[in-house]
Design a protein around this nucleic acid. Structure first.
Length: 573
DNA sequence: GCCGTTTTCGGCCCGACTGTTTTCAGTCG
């Protein structure tokens, strides 16, 4: 059982307890436990089997929940969850996903009208029965119908790349509104989370009206969902929703901190404020009525005895304690990246030639790149067999002679076949400057076989790095069943690096696993997997993922000068 | 249900907006 499944069961328990109207702190306890499990890089199931007591050392997991987790791992469930599922039909959880419909209202509809599914809810709303229930009215009935019909297009999380592009465009435009002093994206987009459920934009201005008017008429805005004196919620043309908050200049830092989140980070910071006799809200840090700080995030953190924490780290994974000790790392930046070691050309499924990719890399100031087209197994992309690959490399060697200001490595993205063999023979791989080994096919194989494949690749003397190790696609496909601890141990032993694939659909390694690999001393490579010149610009997303993992320049192999990078390579190259 | 330099009970983050109320509960972030 993987961590996400355990976390899901705990989250489901929390939701069902909400329906039951249970003690809110008890509900929160299950949610906190779910977050803790989801954030572990090691298999919690394995941990529980090895040493059941150790679960209790995880934050938010005590005697009771640890027992339930162990039952869950052994039997697939636990009694409380089974009882709750008996008590509430699963359709209620679907209903709770509709905006505006929470646990209280869902359970009320269940009690009053015996509604147990979205279909029944829709029928009841169409029949006008919802408006008759106490606490509901005509408007909530219409809102429910609208929410059901829009369910397909809205409420989906979008990739960070999409979120950033929308947010950036709107931030740029709102900055031009007269009277606007500061404007910034906030929320998960500012934290560069891999997906965003909605967008948050924060503005400081004396008068909110012109800002809200401008947003309401913005070409990217489809409709205004709600509007108050300081807060406006709109739906953008592609269905994603955006919150705008307008605050006074002296509160901008407090509001930015507040709306950047994460929620878990905020709760910890606030708790800390309360312990020190303060009150912290989006308007500032207060002692009684006296405002202590609020204009900038820095002064608020400072007043609480903390150094400023980069948004990418604000997930309550220990960053507050790090900050207290003055140990927040100097995170890797895009400008520090010197090389890009995963890209394709027209030889396989890229759209640009070798020369065009080299030129594009030079324009972006890179000192070195690796051309890494597909191996033969990827027939869809016209993957290269030994003959074509050697000809391709010969061409690269010829062309790279023309350039004195950039190093170009002859590379290959070589598949690890389903039977664990490499897709190309060793004598071919031996001629490469740079070999990325990857899983493309058979991702659903049992964990045992997946690990056999990965470990085989790591033991191959010519493999330099494992590319997009899990094979996951963000919010589309779960990755392979990997024993991460074993993978990293083997990679560290054999001097094989790990890639953070910067493609926003992949971002693989994820933040948690990248941090775990770094902790094992494995050099991390951040590469774009570009299939065109513009694909090289995806680097910013890979760097963001590395920042979320707390990586610094020294942790990243291709942030080093070329000579130093070469020394990190295995001696076979 | 978890947690502890105010330790084994009694806390547990805080405010805006909506709809349905007529002073507030529910939802959301």
């Amino acid at each position: 059982m993987i961590n996400a499944e355990i976390a899901e069961a705990l989250e489901e328990t929390a939701q069902l307890l909400e329906l039951q109207g249970a003690n809110s702190f008890r509900i929160r306890a299950y949610r906190n436990a779910a977050h803790t499990i989801a954030d572990q890089s090691e298999s919690v199931a394995q941990l529980a089997l090895d040493d059941p007591e150790s679960l209790r050392s995880l934050p938010g997991i005590g005697a009771d929940i640890s027992t339930k987790i162990i039952q869950l791992i052994k039997t697939g469930s636990f009694p409380l969850l089974l009882e709750l599922r008996q008590e509430f039909p699963s359709g209620l959880l679907e209903m709770m996903k509709l905006p505006g419909l929470g646990a209280k209202k869902a359970s009320l509809l269940y009690r009053e009208l015996k509604i147990t599914s979205l279909a029944e809810l829709q029928a009841a709303a169409e029949a006008g029965q919802i408006a008759q229930v106490k606490g509901f009215g005509k408007k909530s009935e219409q809102a429910i119908l609208a929410a059901i019909s829009e369910r397909e297009s809205v409420g989906q999380r979008v990739l960070i790349s999409t979120a950033r592009q929308f947010a950036q465009q709107i931030v740029d435009d709102l900055r031009k509104v007269p009277g606007v002093k500061q404007c910034s994206e906030a929320g998960s987009a500012r934290r560069w989370k891999e997906t965003c459920g909605d967008l948050d934009i924060l503005v400081s201005a004396e008068d909110a009206v012109p800002v809200m008017d401008r947003l309401a008429k913005h070409p990217l805005v489809a409709s205004v969902l709600s509007r108050g004196p300081t807060k406006q919620r709109v739906r953008l043309v592609d269905g994603i929703e955006l919150d705008l908050r307008v605050v006074p200049e002296e509160s901008f830092g407090a509001a930015l901190l507040y709306f950047t989140g994460s929620k878990e980070h905020n709760v910890e910071v606030r708790k800390r404020a309360v312990e020190q006799g303060y009150r912290l809200n989006e308007y500032g840090l207060f002692r009684g009525e006296e405002s202590i700080a609020g204009k900038t995030e820095e002064e608020i953190y400072q007043a609480l005895g903390l150094t400023w924490i980069p948004p990418e780290l604000r997930e309550n994974r220990g960053e507050i304690e790090q900050s207290e000790r003055g140990e927040i790392p100097k995170l890797i930046t895009l400008e520090e990246m010197r090389g890009d070691l995963h890209m394709h050309t027209t030889a396989t499924d890229g759209t640009a030639s070798i020369r065009e990719m080299i030129e594009a890399a030079r324009e972006r100031g890179l000192d070195y790149i690796a051309i890494t087209d597909h191996s033969q197994r990827v027939s869809m992309a016209r993957g290269l067999d030994p003959v074509r690959l050697r000809a391709h490399w010969a061409e690269i060697r010829k062309i790279r002679e023309e350039y004195t200001d950039i190093e170009v490595l002859c590379g290959i993205e070589c598949d690890i076949l389903e039977d664990a063999r490499m897709d190309l023979p060793d004598d071919v791989l031996a001629e490469a400057d740079w070999v990325i080994a990857v899983l493309h096919y058979g991702l659903k194989q049992p964990g045992e076989q997946i690990m056999k494949r990965l470990l085989n690749a790591i033991r191959n003397p010519y493999v330099c790095v494992i590319g997009h190790p899990s094979g996951r696609l963000v919010s589309r496909r779960a990755g392979a069943d990997i024993a991460w601890g074993d993978l990293f141990k083997a990679a560290a032993d054999h001097g094989v690096m790990m890639e953070i694939n910067a493609d926003p659909h992949r971002l693989d390694l994820n933040d948690v696993h990248a941090a775990a690999a770094r902790d094992m001393g494995i050099p991390i490579v951040i590469s774009t997997d570009a299939h065109s010149q513009g694909g090289l610009d995806l680097m910013v997303y890979g760097v963001a993922q590395a920042r979320r993992a707390g990586l610094t320049k020294k942790d990243v192999a291709n942030a080093q000068p070329f000579a130093k990078f070469k020394r990190l390579l295995r001696t076979s190259h």
